[in-house]
């Protein structure tokens, strides 16, 4: 049996299923076989492996350091928020604010520039347009981590080390290829007539952009915005290089450095570190709860086009 014979039969069989109710049994509605039971157990075990570490993290963050020492695995009874108070009164509070500023600014600029360039790729006409979009897609997929030294040199050369604009500019550079690509594919799917009708009214590109493209793109902004925010919120390496002074640290940097005092466990307790981890992880989890569909779309955007 090959796929070609299957697809040749397809219309005939589909027709038969349509007219014969006995054959119209949906997939997955049979009685559970032992094999299926095993499959579900395996799936559940993998799910437990991805959920439990985060449950442990939340439980630990809600225990006092003393509680955690005597009761590593159990429920946090009674739960306490002391660890968050301790963490926030240290450098973590400042780092949280720094993350919100740099990641927020980087996300907003990415969405604006991505929307403008995506509009250009879809509705403006210029030479080597397809090639250019392809190059941007390649830049999007190739890893940035192996090029950190020469990229850092550029930031160094233009004198933006230890400045917020330096990190924000870099964050835009990290996310703008995906931003342009996503907005371009979004606008290319917009019916041509919408733009044509505006042009017959004599609207200039600028007006078409603001009066038609931007309102249309609102759902794409949410997809791109949440996707970009998530990626940048979790960024460590450039923040570590560009924002070296303690009062400029972003949250991932502060957490990575907390861990280095783990080698000297009396300094920072695991329960307090867990509170810091939860502060970093809570926002992505919350965004996922709110924008599940958009984040999923953003993650699969490059693959299915």
């Amino acid at each position: 049996m090959t796929i070609s014979t299957l697809s040749a039969l397809e219309p005939v069989i589909a027709d038969e299923i349509e007219h014969n109710p006995n054959l119209r049994r949906r997939r997955g509605h049979k009685r559970m076989s032992p094999a299926k039971f095993v499959v579900i157990i395996v799936c559940a075990a993998i799910a437990a492996s991805t959920i439990y570490p985060f449950v442990f993290m939340i439980f630990t963050a809600l225990k006092t350091p003393g509680d955690y020492a005597s009761n590593k695995l159990g429920l946090p009874l009674p739960p306490t928020l002391d660890n968050f108070v301790t963490a926030l009164s240290g450098t973590l509070g400042v780092s949280f604010v720094n993350s919100v500023i740099t990641v927020g600014a980087g996300t907003i600029i990415t969405v604006i520039l991505g929307c403008m360039a995506g509009f250009a790729f879809a509705f403006l006409r210029f030479p080597f347009r397809a090639t250019l979009l392809r190059i941007i897609m390649i830049i999007m997929v190739l890893p940035i981590t192996v090029l950190i030294p020469p990229i850092f040199k550029v930031i160094l050369d233009i004198g933006l080390v230890n400045t917020y604009p330096g990190l924000i500019l870099l964050y835009v550079a990290i996310s703008i290829p995906a931003g342009v690509y996503m907005m371009a594919t979004f606008f290319m799917a917009v019916p041509r007539e919408l733009i044509e009708s505006a042009r017959i009214d004599g609207a200039r590109p600028f007006r078409v952009f603001f009066e038609i493209a931007v309102p249309l793109a609102r759902p794409a902004f949410i997809t791109l915005g949440t996707f970009t925010f998530l990626g940048l919120w979790n960024e460590l390496l450039f923040a570590l290089l560009i924002m070296s002074s303690p009062e400029q640290r972003t949250l991932p940097v502060a957490i990575a450095l907390l861990r280095q005092s783990v080698q000297n466990p009396t300094l920072v307790q695991d329960a307090i570190i867990a509170a810091g981890l939860l502060m970093s992880a809570a926002l992505p989890f919350l965004l996922f709860v709110l924008f599940n569909r958009q984040i999923t779309q953003g993650m699969v955007a490059g693959a299915l086009k």
Partner: peptide, 29 residues
Amino acid sequence: RIPGASFFKIAYVLPVLVSPVVIGVLFVI
């Protein structure tokens, strides 16, 4: 469409959402 399919899908995405820093430090603990 095994029972719990959509739950499994969400569970598998959780580590993707979180910073690798958080995951690294969490596993140190």
